[in-house]
């Protein structure tokens, strides 16, 4: 008994010597600074994301496409043109399309069906970069913001919504690519980090999934862009050494459905701001 206590004390002491604790301190200090920075930028007058929100509102009302109409009659699940709370329930099943769609798939669908807009250019600009704005990023920022302050209501009533959650879970655990990674490699175990970056556990319902899913879309300071969940998952697969994940593909939506299911009830604060 005494020996084992001595051993654990020794282990703690060695941990300190080995720099484990100072590293944790460094991490805490960094995270505190980032938190302070987030607070500073969380009001609408200083978070650059709100420039995207404003552009998104203009795009929502802009008449274009062969039919020269706006998106204002687009049904995001809560009825034509109804934006309040729509994002909180996405992805969801749409009867008219007979499939489960996330916000980005649904917007492309509305552009094609309502506006008869050629979306090739929109998809080409799916991810903004210096000098290139993204209509999708702007529209998502605007629409998601209309659910800010609400809670995530993951839709799991329709059989196709349940199928998508199950598919998303299977994809979450599917190892592959040059480095044998799956989503679960980084997001299943508690208290892990890559370098100093903490990793949220996304494989079960709880606070980590809620605070992650409740804060996308977000303004990525390092990229000077509002990034959507489509981009987040594309970026994950890029880091995982998988090929370029297709924008608006059903696999990405399935993963989002699974993640939203685990994030159900989480508070939405978007667009947020992150590193």
């Amino acid at each position: 008994m005494r020996a084992s206590r001595l051993l654990s004390l020794l282990a703690v002491a060695m941990g300190i010597l080995w720099g484990g604790v100072p590293a944790a301190h460094a991490q805490d200090a960094t995270e505190k600074e980032i938190e302070r920075y987030r607070e500073m930028l969380s009001d609408p007058f200083s978070n650059p994301a709100f420039l995207f929100v404003d552009r998104g509102e203009a795009l929502w009302k802009l008449a274009r496409g062969e039919k020269n109409v706006s998106l204002e009659t687009c049904d995001l699940g809560e009825g034509p043109g109804k934006l309040e709370g729509a994002f909180a329930k996405l992805p969801r099943y749409f009867t008219d399309a007979d499939r489960v769609m996330d916000l980005e798939q649904r917007l492309l669908w509305c552009m094609e069906k309502i506006q008869a807009l050629d979306t090739r250019d929109i998809v080409k600009r799916k991810f903004g970069r210096p000098g290139v704005t993204s209509d999708m990023q702007d529209l998502v920022a605007f629409i998601a913001n209309k659910s800010s302050g609400l809670k995530i209501e993951a839709q799991q009533n329709h059989p196709k919504e349940q199928e998508m959650a199950a598919l998303g879970e299977a994809l979450f655990y599917r190892r592959g690519g040059q480095w044998d990674f799956s989503c679960a490699t980084c997001h299943e175990a508690e208290g892990q980090r890559i370098r100093l970056q903490g990793l949220p556990v996304l494989s079960k319902p709880g606070k980590a999934a809620q605070s992650t899913m409740g804060t996308w879309p977000t303004y990525r300071v390092s990229q000077s862009q509002v990034r959507t969940m489509q981009h987040r998952l594309w970026d994950c697969y890029w880091q995982m050494r998988w090929p370029d994940a297709a924008y608006g593909s059903d696999g990405i939506t399935a993963l989002t459905v699974y993640l939203q299911k685990n994030a159900n009830g989480g508070e939405i604060q978007v667009p947020s701001i992150k590193r």
Binding site: L167, A170, L171, R174, G176, Y237, W242, P243, D244, A245, A246, S249, D250, G251, I252, A254
Partner: peptide
């Protein structure tokens, strides 16, 4: 699952 993977990475 494999169909979804093809949809994501088949290109």
């Amino acid at each position: 699952v494999e169909k979804a993977v093809t949809g994501m990475f088949g290109h």
